[in-house]
Design a protein around this nucleic acid. Structure first.
Length: 522
RNA sequence: GGCCCCUUCGUCUAGCGGUCUAGGACUCCGGCCUUUCACGCCGGCAACACGGGUUCGAGUCCCGUAGGGGUCACCA
């Protein structure tokens, strides 16, 4: 039997990081065994614009490289892959359930049920529907209809015995049928509900393993009932622990951003992203642009593999030490039996650590390519780039070393891309390094003359030049180097100063130093 | 509240009866390197929720307790 798994997002307008983890495990499980991964859109309850709300989700999957064998945009033999287009299939299932007596029309109004619930509560008993408005024959249907009531269709669930689930993550889980309710499977308006739809779809799409979040665990008995009564073979189930909030065990939710921002690490990541976004000129809504949503990472230049690697280890491990997994590694080693049972908190810092490490391993050429679109979006490099851009950028990336953690960090070094006249000097740094220190301006001016005479403008030659100057003047290197940095970059921090000078070149350095000197003097 | 699930350093985790004075990773704290900032290197702090069993022996098995979480819709 071929393994087929699925991820079934509802079109909400964004891809949640917890959803990605679930999708990743599904993808790995299927692809690791030569099976298929299916994407299906659960839009049984959507009035909104599905395609607009689906776009960010599809985009996220593509960006992360979680390719699907069947689903939106790629089609497949078990379509359509939108629940909203499968209504007649659900209707057929409802009819079958009705015909076999495993479901019934129910004419209870919401008030009726509410009254029963209240009654049960005051009596201190668990609620079980009385089935007072159950109609299993035409006469009863006619009678209730005459009262002006509208029916829903409910499952006629067993009221004794138990359901036994063999879960691939949890092991055996037992449920008492008497605790289950007669769930609605079809609304008054004829539309069907998730539980019915998901069973019908999973069966018709030949899903062999239903791997989903733990929140579905207690829903499973009713679905098992539907499988059984429809004569469908039961798939394997695996209920994953959910991804929890940073610093707590609550399920991670997109709606509690405010709360997460009180978490230092979360707030820090968000802020880092925000500063990149603003330099990119992005109009960011908090709702979408935050570390719970995948778009955030894409927009500031995270590496998809770093995110996947982090998520892989959130609830799964190979052994006592393996941390780094390439895609091939993941596909080779992933297994459900090493999935943990407890919820795992989302830790922004650890995600960042994976990103840092992954970024360090990106080859030079690839890193240049990674960073270029960010410079273009920020308006610092033309589209298409002039031909001198590539070698220039390459020099910068080399000089940057490990300083660029996410692609968008290149914008911290905009000083290499603005004209000498547009360079903005950080006032505080100018104060600290030029205006305040005794003789700093004179020293810089003096050294400027040496730079003007320099014949070789390479890092090594420049280092030699500066060191001999320092020796000659009997000063400490720090007395000149910081002044020099702020003069040519406008900033207090940056790459090694000799690389910086060499990249900018003699002419630009001199112009910038002159500007800095003028600024320091006024 | 009923039902279900979960419980090892702050966080992610290893551990499937003795090798555990509990290992790794991230964070944090020292120190080194150093022209800044990163990087790198060295070192350190830090956990088996509690109580009963079972056993020669329990982080590891069983039962309770406590705590945490999920779910109880004409949502998905």
């Amino acid at each position: 039997m071929t393994v087929r798994t699925r991820f079934a997002p509802s079109p909400t307008g964004y891809l949640h990081i917890g959803g990605v983890r679930t999708a990743l495990f599904n993808w790995l499980f299927a692809k690791g065994q030569g099976g298929q991964f299916i994407l299906r859109v659960d839009d049984t309850d959507q009035q909104r614009n599905v395609s607009a709300a689906l776009e960010p989700i599809i985009n996220g999957f593509r960006w992360l490289g979680l390719d699907w064998d069947e689903g939106p945009e790629v089609g497949g033999n078990c379509g359509p892959y939108f629940q909203s287009q499968r209504t007649e299939k659900y209707q057929a299932a409802v009819d079958a359930l009705l015909a076999s007596g495993n479901a019934y029309r129910d004419f209870a109004q919401p008030e009726d049920l509410e009254a029963e619930r209240e009654q049960a509560q005051t009596a201190g008993k668990p609620f079980t529907y009385s089935r007072s408005w159950m109609a299993e024959d035409d006469q009863t249907v006619a009678r209730f209809s005459a009262e002006g009531r509208q029916p829903v269709v409910r499952l006629k669930m067993p009221r004794s015995g138990e359901a036994v689930l063999q879960d691939l993550v949890r092991g055996e889980v037992r449920f008492q049928w008497k605790r289950e309710q007669d769930h609605v499977i079809q609304r008054t308006d004829g539309s069907c509900l998730y539980h019915l739809a998901t069973v019908v779809d999973d069966h018709q799409m030949q899903i062999s393993h239903v791997i989903r979040a733990e929140e579905h665990l207690s829903n499973t008995p009713r679905q098992m009932f539907i499988y059984e009564k429809l004569g469908y073979p039961l798939p394997q189930f695996a209920h994953l622990p959910y991804v929890a909030e940073p610093g707590s065990k609550h399920k991670l939710s997109k709606r509690k951003l405010e709360k997460y921002l009180k978490h230092r690490d979360f707030a820090q990541l968000k802020q880092h992203g925000g500063s990149i976004a603003s330099r990119l000129g992005l109009q960011v809504e908090d709702e979408i642009f935050n570390p719970v949503i995948v778009d955030f990472y894409q927009q500031i230049g995270f590496l998809p593999d770093a995110i996947l690697n982090y998520l892989l280890l959130l609830g799964w491990s190979l052994d006592d030490s393996a941390e780094e997994f390439s895609r091939a590694d993941m596909l080779e080693h992933f297994s459900l039996d090493r999935v943990n049972k407890g919820a795992a908190s989302f830790d922004p810092q650890k995600l960042v650590a994976f990103q840092d490490r992954a970024m360090q391993q990106v080859p030079l050429k690839a890193k240049v390519a990674l960073v270029l679109p960010f410079l273009q979006q920020a308006g610092l490099v033309r589209k298409p780039p002039p031909c001198e851009t590539s070698p220039y950028l390459t020099q910068i990336i080399v000089a940057a070393g490990d300083r660029i953690k996410v692609a968008g960090d290149i914008l911290d070094y905009d000083d290499f891309f603005v004209s000498d006249q547009q360079l903005i000097f950080d006032e505080r740094t100018v104060d600290k390094r030029l205006r305040k220190p005794e003789g700093a301006v004179e020293l810089l001016e003096d050294f400027r003359a040496r730079l003007a005479e320099a014949t070789a403008f390479e890092p090594e030659a420049l280092e030699e030049l500066l060191k001999s100057y320092v020796a000659e003047k009997e000063i400490k290197i720090g007395q000149i180097i910081h002044a020099l940095r702020v003069a040519v970059t406008g900033k207090s921090v940056g790459f090694g100063i000799f690389e910086t000078l060499a990249i900018l070149g003699q002419e630009r350095c001199l112009v910038r130093i002159d500007r800095a000197l003028a600024l320091a003097r006024c």
